[in-house]
Design a protein around this nucleic acid. Structure first.
Lengths: 193, 193
DNA sequence: ATAGTTTTTTATCATTTGATAAATTTTCGC
DNA sequence: GCGAAAATTTATCAAATGATAAAAAACTAT
């Protein structure tokens, strides 16, 4: 059954970070729910509360926020990865960021309530979660360093080099929002390169 | 004894994130070592391996990196806070960032070896560590958002507003490196405001 | 296929920041 | 306090990016 495969892929991701043990894996798996979003649909509204950790079975999403009349993208997440909106998830408070599907997307998720129970009961679950957040932190560190250090044109080229597969799936406008520049500026950068 | 107070402050920070229980607190405390650095001294060299999690009993440090002929500051950490160089610490690999004391500084630290043992033995220790990293992540998220969204002058004013105490302790040059602009640019911004 | 919509490009001018150099002020050791 | 060194400011010109408008290209629904 499709649903089982989606769950297995979620658990597979978890166990690559930290093997759970049979008990934990079974119980973990029972808490998972698969949901679908069409291209353009909102998965989490700005000011909504993020109640889940998500695994992307297929598709692509962006976490982003609107400010003045421009928008900015924190990160893209494609199939095979996990995401949540960390500050909202941890504190269960309104999120500064929204999440939107950029393609038809299949997500398998676990609720914070269930995740907390798992973490309390199984040390391995907590270890997995710690590693997941660690990965996110390390990513963010290098992003901060890169934004401070490099101009948009260099960051654009770096992104092309590091995510050759993603590039074709992301619009110019979204790419610009991720770089923190306007669509028009990115178009100019492209013309020059 | 001074050393005991330093350890108690470290443990106090930990317990505010996650109460440890008596056993864990005692054993945790036994692994702590206090070290001192003078203003200007290097706590961790770029390409060094970060083997500790540090608590700052007193003083101020910066984590930074050099690139081309400019330098950039990832973060300042003042007394009462904890820090490590996360990617280097987790993977025990050479660090892209250096750590330097901006004032005479007293640090109390625990080695990764001991921390790993504590986390394996006490669930609470791992929970503490997860929360520590979570805090760092949430901080970094808002920093990324702010850098994307705001010009240096706005980020400077925000920093003044959020860290009125720190401002007097940080040089113009370091402040500029934190903002990702040159010293001269920050001086100009100051003149205009 | 066509009309309408959205996305991307091109152009122009304004603002922000960088690079460099020099002047000024502050800090620090003696 | 004095002089050297370091930090900060001021000035000038160049490069990167923003704002706006309009043209061109790509995509969509009928």
């Amino acid at each position: 059954m499709e649903q089982d495969k989606y769950k297995r892929d979620f658990i597979g991701f978890v166990e690559r970070l930290c093997p759970l043990g049979n008990d934990a894996a079974t119980i973990f798996s029972q808490q998972l729910v698969t949901v679908r979003f069409n291209k353009g649909e909102t998965i989490l509204k700005q000011d909504g509360i993020c109640r889940y950790v998500y695994f992307i079975n297929s598709g692509l999403v962006k976490t982003w926020f609107e400010s003045k009349d421009r928008s900015f993208i924190m990160r893209f997440f494609a199939e095979g990865n996990m995401f949540t909106v960390l500050d909202s998830y941890l504190a269960q408070q309104p999120s500064a960021y929204a999440v939107e599907a950029l393609e038809n997307t299949v997500l398998t998720r676990i609720s914070k309530t269930d995740m907390d129970k798992l973490c309390a009961r199984f040390h391995t679950a907590e270890t997995f979660f710690r590693k997941l957040i660690s990965m996110a932190s390390v990513n963010m560190m290098s992003r901060i360093g890169e934004i401070l250090e490099e101009q948009a044109s260099v960051r654009y080229e770096n992104f092309l080099g590091e995510n050759p597969d993603l590039v074709q799936r992301i619009s110019l406008g979204d790419m610009a929002s991720y770089l923190g520049i306007t669509q028009v500026s990115l178009s100019r950068i492209r013309a020059i390169i």
